[in-house]
Amino acid sequence: MIYWHHKKSSYTGPYDKTVENFRKADWIDVTLGVRTFGLDGRQLRENRRQFPNRGFHWFLIKAITKNFFRNPAANPLPMFTK
Rank of each mutant, 00 (worst) to 15 (best):
M1G: 03
M1V: 07
M1L: 10
I2E: 11
I2H: 11
Y3L: 09
Y3V: 11
Y3C: 04
Y3P: 03
W4S: 09
H5Q: 11
H6A: 01
H6D: 02
K7H: 00
K8R: 13
K8P: 00
K8Y: 00
S9R: 04
S9G: 01
S9K: 04
S10M: 02
S10K: 06
S10F: 02
S10D: 08
S10H: 05
Y11V: 00
T12D: 05
G13L: 04
Y15V: 03
Y15S: 07
Y15N: 11
D16R: 12
D16V: 02
K17F: 02
K17N: 09
V19G: 01
V19Q: 00
E20V: 01
E20Q: 08
N21G: 06
N21C: 06
N21Y: 07
N21A: 06
F22P: 00
F22G: 01
R23G: 09
R23D: 09
R23P: 11
K24G: 06
A25C: 05
A25K: 04
W27N: 10
I28Y: 08
D29P: 01
D29H: 12
D29N: 12
V30G: 05
T31R: 15
L32V: 02
G33M: 10
G33T: 08
V34N: 13
V34F: 14
R35I: 03
T36A: 12
T36H: 13
T36P: 11
F37D: 13
F37H: 13
G38E: 06
L39Q: 08
L39D: 06
G41Y: 03
G41K: 15
G41I: 02
G41Q: 12
R42A: 09
R42V: 01
R42M: 03
Q43H: 10
L44N: 11
R45P: 01
N47S: 09
N47V: 05
N47R: 14
N47K: 13
R48L: 05
R48C: 03
R48S: 08
R49F: 08
Q50R: 15
F51W: 10
P52M: 05
P52F: 07
P52W: 05
N53P: 03
N53M: 07
N53L: 05
N53K: 08
R54S: 04
R54Q: 07
R54F: 04
R54V: 01
G55Q: 07
F56L: 07
W58P: 00
W58Q: 12
I61A: 14
K62G: 13
A63S: 14
A63F: 14
A63H: 13
A63Y: 11
I64R: 15
K66W: 14
K66N: 15
K66S: 13
N67K: 15
F69Q: 11
F69D: 12
F69K: 12
R70W: 00
R70P: 00
R70F: 02
P72N: 11
P72L: 09
A73N: 14
A74C: 05
A74N: 13
P76I: 04
L77E: 15
L77D: 13
L77F: 14
P78F: 14
P78V: 11
P78R: 15
P78M: 14
P78T: 14
M79H: 15
T81P: 00
K82I: 00
K82Q: 10
K82Y: 08
K82G: 08
